[in-house]
């Protein structure tokens, strides 16, 4: 079954030895990782650790979308960007580090904004999407587009000392809209002064999303489907809420009212 596909070099066997040793990953799982295609949305606080861990794990093709350039204020948490990258496109900075960790992988930098007009075409090339943007319009857009295209994805959010993540397999599990319905009113979204984040929180949540991605690809364990995982790092409390698909969900319900994608109004600054 995997006979013809085993062509790892000696170096790759060493590189991936800790995966291959896992009973739930093994040679077969590593082959799946090598042939997988994952799209990371946002090369920021969440996207940075996701990019580094997926590259290290040997995910064969990784697309990464972001339209920003590296600024000094990013460096407190966006660990794939270095001081000497200030002014550089984030996707290019991320690509350099990913290839430096693992030259075997292919990285596709996409320096652009994701909008209703281009998202479906972009995500269609991938097996799994990791949503790590900094705003609700993008989170809802990604949810709706992935549901429409039936592409599984992980969606995450962080704020101050808190983080949350869920994994969605369209058609099978509750989507982001099942849990949150609509973006919050723009004036309720925390303003910049209230919207700090402890740098390591981005790493905690990003690595949860990276782990979900690797689990999805290899089939190991059970995913955060129909589940919202939240944590409060001040007390290191982790909490899971069980979710279920909502019959009246506007995108994945019985009679979806959303037929075409729309761009919600962008609010406040990125968190």
């Amino acid at each position: 079954m995997v006979k013809k596909m085993i062509d790892f070099t000696e170096e790759q066997l060493e590189r991936y030895s800790r995966h291959i040793l896992l009973a739930d990953v093994g040679v077969e799982g590593q082959i799946r990782l090598s042939s997988a295609r994952v799209l990371i949305i946002g090369a920021g606080g969440l996207g940075a650790p996701v990019a580094l861990y997926l590259a290290a794990a040997g995910v064969g093709t990784i697309g990464i979308v972001d339209n920003d350039i590296v600024e000094v204020s990013n460096l407190q948490r966006q660990v794939c960007h270095f001081h000497n990258n200030i002014g550089k496109a984030k996707v290019e900075s991320a690509r350099e580090k990913m290839k430096a960790i693992n030259p075997d992988i292919t990285v596709i930098p996409l320096e652009k904004y994701l909008v209703a007009d281009n998202i479906r075409e972009i995500i269609r090339d991938y097996d799994f999407v990791v949503e790590g943007s900094d705003n609700f319009p993008t989170k809802f857009l990604v949810n709706d587009a992935c549901v429409m295209e039936s592409i599984p994805f992980s969606i995450g959010g962080i704020l101050r000392f808190d983080g949350q993540a869920m994994t969605i397999v369209p058609g099978e599990s509750a989507c982001y809209r099942c849990a949150f319905r609509n973006p919050p009113p723009p004036d309720a979204v925390p303003s910049c002064s209230e919207a700090g984040v402890l740098g390591a929180i981005a790493g905690m949540l990003g690595t949860i999303q990276a782990a979900e991605t690797l689990k999805f690809i290899t089939g190991a364990g059970s995913l955060l489907t129909d589940t919202l995982l939240s944590f409060d790092a001040k007390n290191m409390d982790f909490h899971k809420v069980r979710l279920q698909r909502q019959d009246d969900c506007a995108i994945c319900g019985k009679e979806p009212s959303i037929r075409t994608l729309v761009d919600y109004e962008q609010t406040t600054c990125g968190i």
């Binding site: 920021g44 606080g45 949503e131 790590g132 943007s133 900094d134 609700f136 962080i158 983080g163």
Partner: peptide, 11 residues
């Protein structure tokens, strides 16, 4: 009852 808090950050 479950409260699900919106968290929009990620950058």
């Amino acid at each position: 009852v479950d409260f699900l808090y919106f968290m929009g950050g990620g950058a």
